[in-house]
Design a protein around this nucleic acid. Sequence first.
DNA 1: GGCATATAGTTAGTTATGCAACTAAATCAA
DNA 2: TTGATTTAGTTGCATAACTAACTATATGCC
Lengths: 146, 146
Amino acid sequence: MPNNHFKRGELYSVINGMASTAVARRLQKNFRQAGLEITIEQWSVLYHLWKEDCLSQQELCNRTFRDKPSITRLIDNLEKQSLVKRMPSKTDRRINLVCLTEPAKNLQQLTIDLANQTMSEALVGVKKEDIDIVKDVFQRVYDNLT
Amino acid sequence: MPNNHFKRGELYSVINGMASTAVARRLQKNFRQAGLEITIEQWSVLYHLWKEDCLSQQELCNRTFRDKPSITRLIDNLEKQSLVKRMPSKTDRRINLVCLTEPAKNLQQLTIDLANQTMSEALVGVKKEDIDIVKDVFQRVYDNLT
DNA sequence: GGCATATAGTTAGTTATGCAACTAAATCAA
DNA sequence: TTGATTTAGTTGCATAACTAACTATATGCC
């Protein structure tokens, strides 16, 4: 079964690098062209806070699929840019609640528009049903491995 | 159309982080458990060299979807571990040909088996047709953006 | 031949990621 | 209540990513 190898390996390449880095690069470029200084990783944190503000760092780990040190440092950088603020939880002193600042709230519409525009460019010629299949496959892969 | 936003955004999350990092982490873990010191990024370079040895760095950029500085440093680290060697091209003095060493050749079977095993774990319950759709969508996304 | 341009690769600086080891606070059990 | 365990978050270290600026060689046009 030597042929099987390379098919699997190529799928691995597909999943790992190719399309996702292309999308990330394009979105980053679109942010920069709009004069925004944030990275897509920082944006992905803000994105979840726009949906629900003042999440704990652990909850941001779960929602962004990142580990705790990554979130610690992303929050560090977002705090340097005054886009979020760590607020100690009143009920559990281990917890930092990460809350949006006013400037961050103002970024929501513009950056989500840019993300939509980027995804639209990326998905030209892709059928809606196929998008749903991709989502399902990725969810399944994630569940299988965690 | 406020609802459209979040659907697109979520697809972006899916493409960007969730499944691919889960697969990468698992494969890295499987490498480590087998006593292999290489990263998956290094492996992805070796993978293309096993298919065709002595590629230029630029050609490795194209095949791995990485930029030139990334490849420069991956090759630096692979060279430190004596897994590849830079050989000056005889016909074009700008070009480094990146060639496998004997130890690297011996890693091929084991690491590809581990990659296959990892992909099999990841793809439990995923239909073959859906895998093909994922590949097609990612190729299309990549082509749309480059 | 000589100059402009394109191509291959490197270097520097910043951000991000993974892992392991750590601190501090909360919880659970004897 | 004390002591073990779990949970939230941070820090240190190594690798990797992108951008921009750089060197060196090759090519193409006059």
